[in-house]
């Protein structure tokens, strides 16, 4: 038995760097993104082999699913921009800039290239050797976590670490997600998609079937998080997958969501997490010290709130900009000459 799974690991461990190399060496960007998604899914298999189900779920849902979808939509936007760019140049509007084509530039600095490659190889070999030297991990904080599992209020060790022992990390983690949504909203506004884009019959039925199932699976993952692999991040990611599917199929209900409600949904998770953290201090405890034996209940409450917020935030990140203004798109010249994405879209 061991040799077969051992061989399975060897194939997997060799496939990852090979795929990574092909990914960066591939000439066509679309193929690079596809390889990146395949790498994410293979990585998820690796996490399964390394006994990390939570990470496998998160990698599959966030790493391969959402990041892949983000890259695809960015790639499409880049192509549409360069397409409209070519049309403008064709029409002679943009002055021809004398940029040195990138290929030639790379040869311009061979010394730096060789030096950086050499440094990298030396560093990797040194690190590889030193990693080989050190004995296997002595269990780090594992025994300490196992010892305190009694008071943690949940069965799954990873959820206990994430939301109880190191809950402060997860709180800041939610702030990072919120900040990303803020950043994307502050940079651009979502293009006014043409109304005419009614999804085809097949896609409509697919969406009608998959989205409810995804929402149920998300709820299931959040619920199962306390005892097995799952939790707020994984549940939120699957919820976001449902949101992305709705955005993809250009379902009209998505555009009717009032901006105020959307902002509250984004803020809900971090705000409730912060308030519960402070509420724990009311009863004389420290920040995030769940009172008495009710840690399990508090954790479930926080997880469900954050899962909703993560889902909405990741879907908003996929949308890639502030929701279009409900009123007639007022003259929003928020950028300089090459103005906002909406200009590009109208070309």
């Amino acid at each position: 038995m061991m040799d077969v799974m051992g061989f399975f690991d060897i194939v997997l461990a060799l496939a990852l760097p090979w795929l990574g190399w092909r990914l960066l060496a591939s000439s066509d960007l679309f193929r690079a993104v596809v390889l990146f998604i395949s790498l994410g899914l293979l990585m998820s298999l690796t996490w399964v082999r390394l006994q990390a189900p939570d990470v496998a779920l998160a990698e599959a849902a966030i790493g391969a699913g959402l990041t892949g979808a983000l890259f695809l939509s960015a790639l499409r936007r880049l192509e549409r921009l360069s397409e409209s760019e070519r049309r403008l140049e064709h029409a002679g509007k943009r002055e021809e800039d004398e940029t040195i084509p990138p290929e030639k530039r790379r040869r311009a600095k061979p010394v730096a290239y060789v030096l950086s490659l050499f440094l990298l190889v030396v560093f990797v070999l040194l690190l590889g050797w030193s990693l080989g030297q050190t004995p296997g991990a002595k269990g780090g904080l594992g025994p300490a976590v196992a010892g305190q599992m009694g008071q943690s209020g949940v069965q799954s060790q990873v959820t206990a670490v994430l939301l109880n022992f190191r809950g402060y990390d997860t709180l800041l983690e939610m702030m990072v997600l919120f900040l990303a949504a803020l950043g994307v909203w502050s940079l651009t506004r979502v293009r006014q998609t043409q109304q005419g884009e009614v999804p085809g019959p097949v896609l409509a039925t697919l969406v009608r079937l998959l989205v409810p199932l995804m929402i149920i699976v998300a709820g299931y993952l959040v619920w199962i998080g306390s005892s097995r692999a799952g939790g707020a991040f994984q549940g939120g990611a699957v919820l976001a997958a449902a949101g992305v599917l709705l955005l993809l199929a250009n379902v009209t209900v998505v555009r009717q969501v009032p901006a105020g409600l959307l902002r509250w949904a984004l803020v809900l998770g971090p705000l409730l997490f912060l308030l519960t953290a402070v509420a724990c201090m009311g009863g004389g405890g420290n920040l995030l010290e769940y009172p008495g034996q009710s840690a399990g209940v508090w954790i479930l409450f926080i997880e469900s709130a954050t899962a909703v917020s993560i889902g909405v935030t990741l879907a908003a990140l996929y949308a890639g900009g502030r929701p279009p203004a409900p009123s007639a798109p007022e003259k929003d010249n928020e950028e300089g000459p090459g103005s906002g994405v909406d200009k590009g879209g109208k070309a």
């Binding site: 998820s44 599959a60 998959l210 097995r228």
Partner: peptide, 25 residues
């Protein structure tokens, strides 16, 4: 048994990726 949950999420996400491919590109 946990792997079946992961298989379920895999199936959902593969569907999402395929649709994203077909539509977005």
């Amino acid at each position: 048994v946990v792997l079946q949950d992961i298989a379920l999420v895999f199936a959902l996400l593969a569907a999402l990726a395929a649709v994203a491919f077909a539509l977005r590109t």
